[in-house]
Amino acid sequence: QWIQSKREDIVNQMTEACLNQSLDALLSRDLIMKEDYELVSTKPTRTSKVRQLLDTTDIQGEEFAKVIVQKLKDNKQMGLQ
């Protein structure tokens, strides 16, 4: 999976804004449970939030991952090649 192969780059480069947009999009599509949303959003640092989101992606699967990839594209953060 692309996200896993780029995990380190995503953790380093995903902005707080992109992270929040991803969470909002996942929530609005019922792809993330409120508990998982809280787990991510209550982490103390941006990098720990991104790591938690990516860990959740492993469990949730492809549809979940597609939303995150789309948000990275929207925010022009796909220089993660």
Rank of each mutant, 00 (worst) to 15 (best):
K43Q: 12
K34S: 10
V67I: 15
F64W: 07
A25F: 13
I3P: 11
T45P: 04
T15D: 11
K49T: 02
C18H: 02
I10M: 07
D74V: 11
N75C: 11
V69W: 07
A25E: 15
T47A: 15
S28L: 10
D36K: 05
T57K: 14
T57L: 14
K66P: 06
L26D: 01
L72V: 07
Q52P: 05
Q52Y: 02
E62Q: 00
E35K: 14
K73H: 08
L19T: 12
L27D: 11
Y37R: 03
A65S: 06
T57F: 07
S41R: 14
Q60A: 12
E38H: 13
K76D: 11
R29P: 07
V11G: 05
D74Q: 10
T47D: 11
I68H: 05
D9T: 08
S22W: 02
T57H: 09
N12E: 15
D74I: 10
I10R: 06
K34M: 09
I3L: 10
P44M: 06
K66N: 04
R29N: 13
E63S: 08
C18N: 09
I68C: 01
L39T: 11
S28Y: 10
Y37V: 07
Q70T: 07
T57M: 15
T42Y: 07
D36M: 02
Q52M: 07
Q60S: 10
I32H: 05
A17Y: 12
N75L: 12
E62G: 05
D55E: 13
Q21Y: 08
A25R: 04
Q52G: 04
A17R: 12
E38A: 12
A17Q: 15
I3G: 01
L31R: 02
W2L: 06
E38K: 10
M33D: 15
V69Y: 10
D36V: 04
T47M: 07
D24K: 08
P44N: 11
K73G: 12
Q21S: 12
A25S: 10
T42E: 11
A65G: 04
E38W: 12
V40S: 04
S41W: 06
T57P: 13
P44F: 15
Y37A: 12
A65N: 07
M33G: 15
I3S: 02
D58Y: 10
P44W: 06
D9N: 02
W2H: 03
Q52E: 05
E38D: 15
T15A: 03
V11Q: 02
L54E: 09
I32V: 08
L39D: 11
K66V: 02
K76S: 14
I10Q: 05
Q60C: 13
N12P: 00
A25C: 13
S41F: 12
L23Y: 01
E35G: 10
E63A: 11
Y37M: 01
I68R: 02
L53D: 02
Q52S: 11
K43M: 07
V40W: 00
K66L: 05
I3V: 06
K6A: 08
A17M: 10
K66E: 15
I3Q: 08
K76M: 15
R46L: 15
R29D: 09
R7G: 04
L27T: 08
K73S: 14
M33R: 15
T57W: 02
S22Y: 00
M33P: 13
L26C: 03
I3A: 03
T56N: 04
P44Y: 11
S28W: 05
Q70I: 04
K49H: 03
